[in-house]
Structures are given as structure tokens and as C-alpha cells.
Design a protein around this nucleic acid. Sequence first.
DNA 1: CTCCTGATTATTGTCCTACATTATGGAGAC
DNA 2: GTCTCCATAATGTAGGACAATAATCAGGAG
Lengths: 229, 229
Amino acid sequence: MNNASPAPPRPDSLSDQPETAVREVIVRDVVRGLYEGRYEPGQRLREAELTQAYGVSRGPVREALNVLAARNIVELTPQRGARLRVLHIGEAIDTLVVAQNLVGLAARLAARNHDDAAGRARLQAALDAHAAFPPEGGGAELAVARDNFYGALTAMAANIQLSRILPSVHIHLIRVQFRPMLRINDASRHRDYQRIVDAVFAGREREAEGAARAHFERGIERLRGLQQG
Amino acid sequence: MNNASPAPPRPDSLSDQPETAVREVIVRDVVRGLYEGRYEPGQRLREAELTQAYGVSRGPVREALNVLAARNIVELTPQRGARLRVLHIGEAIDTLVVAQNLVGLAARLAARNHDDAAGRARLQAALDAHAAFPPEGGGAELAVARDNFYGALTAMAANIQLSRILPSVHIHLIRVQFRPMLRINDASRHRDYQRIVDAVFAGREREAEGAARAHFERGIERLRGLQQG
DNA sequence: CTCCTGATTATTGTCCTACATTATGGAGAC
DNA sequence: GTCTCCATAATGTAGGACAATAATCAGGAG
């Protein structure tokens, strides 16, 4: 059974573990559903509905809800079930502050590994894919492209814990809720990404970290403005 | 039933959610068991054994395992069950690097809130409790005291996401595995903590962050030495 | 009319049993 | 000695049942 094939093709996802389970299917679909608008923050997730919707029994549904709760996507109150988390603005800012640090760290470490050819290729591909979207482009696919960019960046950082934790920050969920207010256009975001990648490829650690932090700083400032005004 | 009593007493834990469930009892006991040596890394966790040990059915046991997997405490392989995670040295270093950044951030934010009286009190109390242990002191209680220190620090940072994520980094699990190699004595750790607290209380953000980062830097260096040697 | 109280209902938390699916280990063939 | 095939063990899921709790609603006291 020693299959010597080099690497299993898994170009899309950040998940390292081969989660075959139904549970993961549900988890993924809920997250994707948030991107696509099928689910929306605040919505209640009743076990009965989910069992019907996915055609599975309550066991896997409950497990999926637990996973989603662990990832802070749903709020789980003991006898009252699950509800898709609603971020108020303060929490969104908190999230961005944490993400700012972690992505900054990722960029710094990635720059340190700037001679990793596979990492460079993946990062460049993710950047190109992100650029391919039209300025008014789609919601869910763009979100996935952004995830892939951050995934490639953290992969190049070669820090397992970082790869594990950063997705759990769920930057994209902020987007789902605050898209109208943030209105960062795709072009400027792409410029930010490009700047990060340039610094990373050149091995300039501090510049890479700074560029990553600067990108988040804008969103933070904008949300802070909304909070006070 | 609108019980107007102000706040339920929960002074010890970082958990904000009132998890009544059996699941959480198991999760907590496994973590504590790791501190106490009842469980050890690499050990397999069979559902049948856990159902017997805790006197519950497979449902809650499986849910607990999922939660533990989400917190990176157990490794869950699709058809082969759960196993308490074994960190090889590289992963331990990765963990400390991430923790270094996050705790540094926490210290900086805490310093920014240095006028928060309640936060100061809690942090001081945690520091005192940590100091109360004898230099050769107990394992599990000391680990809890350390957790409380970081809990108080992040609480004072007043960043919800940080409070949520930092515990999931599970710095303490490194200790469980690498205690013999690390041999940071309690006195020097306490000095580090004291330095952080001093800077925090004085509101010196950069110094607080630097002190926190320096504390982790030692452990990282030590592990790097082990890795190469 | 409002507020409080008690019963009804909906939903979750847990248990139990059963079966499908998949890894693991060993027996036997070559 | 290596390989194939099968028995065993363990997990993944289904489905039904019941207890416990929260939300809801009806009715009565003031």
C-alpha cells in the first residue's frame, strides 16, 4: 500500500487532513453558502433542517456544528442551538487586528523562504488567479481566490501552526458582513497583494511584513471610522 | 425565570460560553490529563475506551474528539480514529513563533489599556498566583496558573478574537512534551512575566511587546539548538 | 390593560442498537 | 520470504427513543 505517488492533487484547499467525512462536506458548504448568500449571518441553524437539507442523520450534523463553532462561524448556546455568528463592528476590528499580525508574520516568513521555488510558483499562480477577476467580479469565487492567496502565502511561510490558525481567523466572514461599508475595490487590493508578493520574492522580510500590515490597516481604519461615526 | 443575579461565578476559566455539555467535560479532562500525565502524546484514544471511562455514549465522545481535533490536541485520521498529537520539534518551534507574535500583540494591546482597573487587578492576581508556586512546583496547577496569566493578559488586551485564538495555540502542550529539554526554571519565567506586567502597567506598549517576545525567544532558541544538535 | 404564572410545544442533549465502511493483522498459497 | 485473501476491530452513519430545557402561549390576578 506504499503508494509512492509524490503529492496528492489538492490545489484548491488549505486542508491538509484528508477529511472524507460528511461532517466536512457540511462545514464546507455552510462556509461556501455564506460566501454565496445562501446562508446569512444571524440565521439559525436547526438540526432538523440541516438533516433534511443534506440528507444525513443528526450525528454528522451535530458534529459539523461543533466544528463550525470551533471555527467561530456559528455561535452555539447550550440548549438553544446554533446560529450563524453576527460580528458587530468591534469584533470585526478585533479580527482584522489579529489577522494583520498573523498575515504580517506569514509575509515575513515567506520572504525568508523566498528561494522556495514551489512556494513562489503557487503564490504567483494565486496572485494571477486573483487578478483575473473583473473589477465587479463574482462573490464566492473571488472569496475563494483570496483564500487561496493567503493560503499560498502561509504555505510559503512554512509554519504549520500558522497554516492551521490563520484560516480559523476567517477574514472572509468579515467581508460577507461588511462588504458594503468596506468598498475596497479589487484593483487596489490587487496592488496591495502585488506589493506583498514583490517584497516576498525579493526576500525583503520587513518590507513584506509592512506591506501586509498596511493592507489590513486600511480596512481597520475604515471600520474604526464607521464605529465612531 | 429572569434571574437578575449579576454574573455567574466563573473566575477560573477563559471560556466565555457556558458549555454545560458532557462534551466539554471530556475535552477539559483530556487536556488536564495531559498536564497531569494521565494521558500522554501519541496515545490512541479509542471511542470504546472513552465511552467506558466517562460513562457516556459514543455521541458525546465523538463530539469531544472533534473539538479536540479542532484545537489541534488530537489528530483525527478518517478511518483510524483519534490519537493525541505528538509534536516534533519543528512544529513546536512553529507553535512558539506564532505564540510569540500573538502574546506580543496581547501585551501591546494590554499596555494600551493600562488604565483598566479590573484588568490590572486580574493580571496582578494571576502574576501573584504564578509566583506562589515553589521552584520545583506541581505540574498541572502550574500549567493552569500559566494559562491564567496569559488569559488575564489577553483579557486586558480586550480583543475578543485574540482571547479566542490564543488558547487554541496551546503553548502548554509544548511544555508537556519538551519540559525536560526546555528547563526554563520558574524563577526566570517569573522574572519575564514580571517585566511584561511592569511595562503593561506603565503603558509602554513597545516595551511590553518586546518583553513578551523576548520571553518566547529563549524557548525558540533552545528548541532550535536541539533541532540542529 | 398589564403583569405574572402555569402549561404546551419545539428543540436540543444523550442514549441505544444496528449496519456499512475501512484499516489491521494473520493464515495460507506460491 | 513475499503476496493474496480473509477475519477481526474500529470507526462512520442511520434511526429511533427519551429526558431536559428554552421559547411560546393562554389564562387569571391585580
